[in-house]
């Protein structure tokens, strides 16, 4: 039998990264501030996790402006969607395996 834990994505071990991915699965686009409010984390903490996800090619960053203020928004990539779905499947298999 294949080891189900092997399919778990290490990148999603972090609750914050998993949370960001969950939010981006159901929202086409979301701003940094909205993410911060939803996740209840600090700027710096969120930013470092977002960079990590971006470097892995799971999310796309769009830098824009509202008036003079910067407005950075994020969306999920095809690769990100695929990785997230596989991660959920692995979690489900683990639960099935336990029972």
């Amino acid at each position: 039998m294949k080891n189900p834990i092997g399919n778990l994505n290490k990148i999603f071990d972090s609750r914050i990264r998993l949370g960001v991915m969950s939010i981006l699965m159901v929202n086409e686009e979301i701003s940094f501030n909205d993410l911060k409010q939803l996740m209840e984390v600090t700027d710096g903490n969120l930013a470092s996790h977002l960079i990590n996800l971006e470097e892995n090619g799971f999310i796309k960053v769009h830098k824009g402006f509202i008036g003079r203020k910067t407005n950075t928004t994020y969306s999920i990539t095809k690769a990100g969607e695929k990785a997230f779905k596989e991660h959920i499947e692995a979690l489900e298999n683990m639960i099935k395996g336990v029972k």
């Binding site: 949370g19 969950s22 939010i23 939803l38 639960i95």
Partner: peptide, 8 residues
């Protein structure tokens, strides 16, 4: 999975 559902 609960976390994922909640955030979504």
């Amino acid at each position: 999975l609960q976390d994922i559902k909640k955030m979504m």
